[in-house]
Design a protein around this nucleic acid. Structure first.
Lengths: 132, 132
DNA sequence: GATAGTGGTATCCAAAAGTATAGTGGTATG
DNA sequence: CATACCACTATACTTTTGGATACCACTATC
């Protein structure tokens, strides 16, 4: 470090980004994991579903995971659970108006992800079958 | 199911959303986990850092995780690693032009997350200290 | 020659996330 | 009254993620 200008000392991130990271983490907590986006997407499309119905729609999910994630999404006000007084009693899960605001994030993820796939794999399309 | 109209049968999601889910997952793979966003953010701010420098900036990260995530981000073309011919040799990590496109996703996550925090916790601000 | 700084790797461990499988209690249906 | 559908829960297990600690080779400084 002789004939180089003195490097500016870089401070730990909290001093710059403490306030920035927290909401980003909050958002990520909602959207990450294997099943949350499929559930939100299904309910965005169908508006309302029963439990077993979702088990069939979201292929591969186990009742344990479905139950857990539905609780999580309900706690976060994105969906509502309603017990219907039918015979036999059924339970309906619906997306809330607030839940629909997820669309903006998901479409951003979608378009960035699409470009990323092109960039990294040089893939333009028509190869979806290979991706499970 | 007597005096109710016949429910439309809801088909498994792949038929509707197979093509939708894949890029969303791709994007999420980049941004989820504990350290990727802090690393991207640090390099977006400082442009270039050395390895030990990043260990100090990103508080709490272990060299193992840092090394692993840097490799991942490099493979995904978001950052570049360059060995500088100095004494002692140093290594510089920089964000790429492409890496800067992450900003759009992160700012979407930030603004949704900020609204979400208000909605769910009725928190407007000034309580950041409680969140580590 | 001890110490410190550079850029990491190796090994072991704990916690979190997710899977597999079975079972529960209720209500219909044949 | 056996079977099946509904909405789950319970238990055990595997996989993934991340953390703790130690260590390596190299160079420079004291």
């Amino acid at each position: 470090m002789k004939n180089k200008e003195v490097k500016d000392i870089k401070v730990p991130m909290k001093e710059h980004f403490g306030n920035y990271m927290v909401p980003v983490r909050d958002a990520l907590e909602i959207f990450s994991g294997k099943w949350k986006i499929p559930i939100i997407t299904a309910l965005t499309f169908y508006e309302t579903c029963g439990f077993k119905e979702m088990e069939r729609i979201i292929e591969g999910i186990t009742p344990k995971m479905l139950s857990k994630e539905l609780k999580f999404l309900e706690e976060n006000l994105l969906i509502v659970r309603k017990v219907e007084d039918t015979r036999p009693i059924t339970v309906s899960y619906s997306i809330t108006e607030y839940g629909k605001t997820c669309k903006s994030v998901m479409s951003e993820l979608y378009s960035w992800g699409t470009e990323h796939r092109k960039k990294v794999f040089n893939i333009e399309g028509q190869v979806w079958d290979e991706c499970k």
